[in-house]
Design a protein around this nucleic acid. Structure first.
Length: 110
DNA sequence: CCGTTGACGCCAT
DNA sequence: TATGGCGCCAACG
């Protein structure tokens, strides 16, 4: 893979490991990859994630548990429905019990 | 070539 | 506690 897209590939690699029913944040992924100040790039990577069928982009939300990427799933409520299908409760674009459902990429090191 | 624009997050106020 | 400003950096027109 090209060096240019290496970062994106690493992002997809992490996202693929997020367990069903759990969520993580753009910033957590950025920090895990050693690019703590490039959380926006993680979001940008997600924008291209549609080319892969095995990257659960809906499990990535912002650091407060808000579904900031909901407008990139075709219909406005698609992201929330995908999450609810995994047992996650979404109220007003906000993941309930976000702290409890949060999955840290650090888990990959275990 | 350069200004704008984000699926974000930290910090100052 | 709530809001706004700004750094980040690739993509777009």
């Amino acid at each position: 893979m090209e060096d240019r897209s290496a970062f994106f590939e690493q992002v997809y690699q992490v996202v693929r490991q997020i367990p069903s029913g759990r969520v993580t944040s753009y910033g957590a992924i950025a920090r895990f990859l050693g690019a703590a100040r490039s959380s926006r790039m993680v979001g940008y990577a997600m924008n291209n994630s549609h080319i892969y069928s095995d990257v659960p982009a809906h499990r990535v939300v912002n650091r407060t548990g808000l579904l900031t990427g909901k407008h990139h799933f075709g219909t406005p409520d698609r992201m929330a429905r995908l999450l609810e299908a995994e047992g996650i409760v979404v109220i007003g674009d906000q993941v309930r019990d976000f702290d409890r459902l949060f999955w840290s990429p650090e888990e990959l090191l275990k």
